[in-house]
Design a protein around this nucleic acid. Structure first.
Lengths: 403, 403
DNA sequence: GATACTTATTATGGAGACCATGATTAGTCC
DNA sequence: GGACTAATCATGGTCTCCATAATAAGTATC
């Protein structure tokens, strides 16, 4: 199976069932090593061999063998024994999250943010550069480069020690990682991001739509932790949506999922006008109008409240269409306007009511402006997971995989 | 893990990754047995040991051991060696699809159909009873019972030799198999189908919405074979939809996926009127009106063509909303009106054009009126698969599992 | 501070599953 | 009937896991 193509995923092929993966005795050892690594990664603290034995189902002597092996290969490390217990103190082991690092990029309209995280997804360094709507393609790419450099410098890593990179960008991104459609940046269509990043970073590279990565971040680290089926609503100047199904991002056939806002009858392309044309926002520049209206609505201004209600009414049409199609467990409200969720969320909920069989729970996003970059890091970690920690993975030795 | 709850599925838990499943040597043997069974099941004809060795990756002596074991337990059978080759003729083995049988039920408005299939999904017997919109709940259940009896008699099986049952019914079916909402049959809501069927059939029982099962059948056996992401459109008196995502039926949080037709602005609940009120169908009873209009449109009648266009225009709104949300590879046109796909399909396609970023391929359903029952059989086979042929399964011995 | 107790580690022997290799068997071709 | 071909059978070896017992390193108690 070809795992390292840019955006290709190792879709558990077949008709929904797991590929059975037997083999010889080395294979069995590999599976048991994977189980041990998984147990250590998922535990909160370090584990003793006895704890590992019960979690993996292996016997005490066997797990000892497996762990020594993994330790020699550099995947796990020994920790000080716990003090103050009965009996002989047990050795304790932890997963070496510092064995490798990944890079998560948010290439936005107004900023570029690069995060370096370890294998547990903890941010260890970041870099940021400011750009704007008018920034040209080449200037924007240069800004990406500077942000990456800054993050790498701060982390003390050289580019060849980065294991995987994922970048979020506006627009539709197809399975091959090409930006096929963009609305906000005129010269961004067709940009070869993977190619550009690949000049300096020899590791696997994934490109993805920014809303999708924000959804991923919320489901992994944020307000939707543990929820398997959700709709992420990006509410801002240009609204959008992303879907997570069975705990995985859903990309569809050509990467254009969640684009219901492009159907004219939803009114999503024009609904921002309901806020901008509100008398409360007269004289305020369009970029700040929404905030002004939400603030006024918060104080009870009737005109502002009516404008928010109309805005939510439009938003509800497209949202209800997705809800009725997918019946998700949760809707996450993200994007710039989600800062005003206290005003917007109740309006949206009551606007959804008449359209829906069942209005799902709605929660405002919790990760703030690093959301997309964090999601990118999650995506990069998933690549690493597939390469090292899946049944098809190698678990060979912690070194940066080459593309 | 609890596998045999009525409608509960063993969702490959976790965040999209396969559970690593090591263990001891017996476990390894089990995995290799599963691999061999899978290879035999997926092959067209019988296989020799050498062929099996290359397909599973095991060595020749080992696969011999595995196969002998499986043969002794009754899962596979030896076949006549192939005649006329060089060298010593090799023993050949096949999967014993006749080792067990499942029951697929279509409990429709106008008919009840029961199919008995073997483990390869081949129909070996069927039973059918006629019902109508006015049939009461109890009468309908009795009709189900008679259809099952007829199918079992025809197959020569006793009820305790059925391995798994799945039934398709109109309405929304939740995860527990309860019929929570029905539009066509007034007294059908809340019917305890699983409980009723369980009185006579001691095996696992699954209840599912009929459109979903039709979609499953088309994806497994029909026009959508091999397609992973599709929208199944049921076009008939009461239109509906079902979704398959990543090669699996998608049920959503409360089982109510694909219900976009309930949003008023799609016009799905009233669009049949466009056909029934067409002058061409004057005096024709409503149940036959659509067919008359389609037939007239086929001959070029301008009024009929306009009616079909208007109908397709309504249908396109809800369909486009699902397409823009999900970006599927394929749309399958099923249900009663799909018999007139030659007229309806082009109209739908051109009505979708202005709404969609990309209009996916649209194919008419191919399985005809047994579609739902076949889908039910597929669903029942999936239960069997989980019980016997998944890494969590037992592969113990081919006997009917008890609930 | 010695002794009992508790828990982990280490060492030993055994069983199961797989593999490589070579001897044997059962066909076809000439 | 003999050469050739390809499958099956038999042998011994390796790997991984397990159960059990002996040893080690702490705490608790007197």
């Amino acid at each position: 199976m070809h795992v390292w193509g840019h955006n290709e995923e190792s879709s558990n092929s077949g008709e929904g069932f797991v590929q059975v993966s037997g083999g010889d005795l080395q294979r069995l050892r590999q599976l048991n090593s994977l189980g041990s690594i998984r147990a250590l990664r998922e535990a909160d603290g370090p584990l003793t061999l006895t704890e590992l034995a019960t979690r993996t189902g292996l016997s005490r002597p066997s797990i000892g063998d497996v762990i020594t092996d993994l330790q020699e290969r550099g995947w796990i490390a020994e920790v000080e024994p716990a003090a103050g217990g009965m009996g002989r103190p047990a050795k304790r082991y932890r997963f070496r999250a510092d064995a490798g690092h990944v890079l998560g990029l948010d290439i936005g309209v107004n900023k570029v943010l690069a995060l370096v995280t370890d294998l547990a997804g903890r941010t260890v360094a970041s870099g940021r550069t400011a750009v704007s709507r008018g920034t040209t393609r080449q200037e924007r790419l240069d800004a990406v480069n500077r942000a990456i450099d800054a993050a790498l410098v701060a982390s003390g890593l050289t580019p060849d020690r980065v294991w995987s990179v994922s970048a979020g960008t506006t627009g539709v991104v197809d399975r091959q990682g090409r930006v096929t459609r963009v609305w906000e940046l005129p010269d961004w269509v067709g940009v070869d991001l993977a190619g550009y990043l690949g000049q300096h970073l020899p590791c696997p590279i994934t490109i993805q739509n920014d809303s999708k990565l924000a959804a991923l971040a919320e489901q992994r680290l944020g307000v939707a932790a543990g929820v398997h089926d959700l709709v992420y609503l990006h509410v801002g100047r240009r609204p959008g949506a992303a879907l997570m199904i069975n705990g995985m991002l859903y990309h569809g056939f050509s990467g254009a999922t969640g684009e219901i806002g492009l159907m004219e009858l939803t009114g999503w392309t024009t609904m921002a006008g309901e806020l901008e044309s509100c008398p409360v926002a007269e004289g305020v520049p369009p970029s700040a109008a929404a905030g002004t209206v939400f603030a006024a609505a918060r104080t009870g201004d009737p005109e502002a409240l009516a404008a928010v209600r109309r805005y939510a009414g439009h938003l509800a049409v497209g949202t209800a269409a997705m809800i009725m199609t997918l019946d998700p467990e949760l809707v996450v409200l993200g994007g710039g306007f989600s800062r005003s969720a206290d005003v917007l969320l109740p309006a949206l909920r009551s606007a959804l009511e008449p359209h829906c069989l069942r209005v799902p729970e709605i929660r405002p996003s919790s990760l703030g402006e690093e959301c997309v970059a964090l999601g990118a890091a999650c995506q990069a970690l998933e690549q690493v997971e597939r390469h090292y920690f899946s049944p098809e993975g190698s678990l060979a030795r912690p070194v940066a995989p080459v593309r």
